[in-house]
Design a protein around this nucleic acid. Structure first.
Lengths: 242, 242
DNA sequence: GGGGTTCGATACAGTTTGTTACAGGTTTTC
DNA sequence: GAAAACCTGTAACAAACTGTATCGAACCCC
């Protein structure tokens, strides 16, 4: 990322919201500051250069509301409000409108992130940071797996339907080719389940998957058994979009 | 934005709403005027060229509805009514009189903005000013969902009617594409209902939605089932204004 | 080769899901 | 207002999926 990251101020009286939101935004390339109340927020605003404020209106005291109005009228920083769903809407709505945007609680962090970027882009033409592109297809030995559609196509062009378990197992293999994966690892990778004693569900899934992708399931080529160790996917895997 | 902005007249007896709404619309590229009552509104309408009127029906003095009727009959300007909650008599009367749209109080400012743009676009082919925040249409796999009108148009251009439940379910999916959503999550996102034991209403809604948007409902592509997990919307969702 | 362990395939049962039918409620229409 | 149409949750059954059990075969080490 070449452009300098923007500085977001988070004002909320709930400690966990402050912290998790700050962590999330930091992870997405922003610098963050937090404030517990309007007074703290004013101090931060004086001390640092804040590009955008995420503000919870429903804080003890009227200060949150007046802070919002102050920021908007002095044009100090754009404001995104966090509002509760069913509150004294008549009064809140009037004040909400002064903000640049608002998000109702409980909110989706990704949505908030998108709105922050939208406001920043609108305010000062900050270049948008692109989300990483997910690879869409994985190829191996003439097979092609469309990751998004969860569709597997064979060398002959015939589509092979996969169940959720088979799909997850195949993905686990394709992402770690030529690696010996124990049953416990595979169990964790596919279902996240805690390995029970004498759990042979993976054996079954492997067997079912072999029946679908191996030319001769009796003599498997793609998925080899490692005696006492687990299974290995032997073929080369290519990601076209990589 | 190159096109000249439209001029909106806001008629409301609440000072807070007038001012904040005017600020909000100005920030989004409109010129605004305000009036405290119907008499003032008539004066403004004589003096300036007004493209659209946002009118509160509940005002002391001359009834807002008679002003609305007058505006429509003389074809002076399209009208969007602000109506109080829970009174569908207002709504019915307002639409009979010829208001172009209505918004119930307490209203969502973004929704009002979207409706203003929709009415203007519909009335006089005013070039649409892009809303950087609220997307009006969502596209996926050749489909197009008009969020404001709740209209879904297929790849063949045929409009598919959606019930409220189907619409909310689709919105929930479109806002979180490629994310596995459990039945409880979907239930909360669509109806806010508390999940009951053995609640299979989501299954039904999914089935009904599939029947409308999937080419082959037996082999769904857009809405995939995640066994033991819920459902996932697999397609890319694009927001034209983005 | 023998004994113990591990693996593959089948069968089966429990769970989850798709679909249809239907009743209660709501909205629309006349 | 009454009737029709529509919407939505519940019930019920068939189909799909997955874990466990089982048995015979393969494997390792001695």
């Amino acid at each position: 990322m070449s452009n300098p990251s923007s500085h977001i101020l988070i004002v909320d009286d709930h400690r966990d919201i402050r912290e998790s939101l700050a962590r999330y935004l930091t992870k997405n390339g922003f610098r963050t500051s937090t404030a517990e109340n309007a007074a703290q927020a004013r101090q931060v605003l004086k001390a640092a250069s804040i590009d955008l404020v995420v503000l919870d209106v429903m804080m003890p005291g009227e200060d949150g509301l007046s802070l919002c109005r102050h920021l908007v009228e002095t044009n100090q920083a754009p404001v995104i409000l966090l509002t509760a769903m069913a509150e004294d809407t008549d009064r809140v709505v009037g004040l909400e409108i002064g903000a640049d945007d608002y998000v109702t609680k409980p909110f989706n962090p990704r949505e908030l992130l998108a709105r922050i970027r939208a406001v920043l882009r609108r305010m000062s033409n900050v270049p948008k940071t692109r989300d990483p592109i997910e690879t869409e297809k994985l190829r191996f030995e003439g097979w092609e797996l469309d990751v998004n559609r969860r569709e597997l196509t064979g060398p002959d062009g015939v589509m092979v339907p996969l169940s959720t378990g088979e799909y997850q197992l195949l993905i686990a293999f394709l992402k770690r080719p030529k690696m010996v994966l124990s049953r416990d690892q595979l169990l964790d990778l596919t279902s996240g389940r805690t390995p029970a004693v004498f759990d042979r569900s993976i054996d079954n899934q492997v067997s079912r998957l072999r029946r679908k992708i191996e030319e001769d399931p009796k003599n498997p080529v793609l998925i080899k058994t490692v005696w006492g160790g687990g299974y290995t996917f032997t073929a080369e895997v290519t990601e076209p979009a990589e």
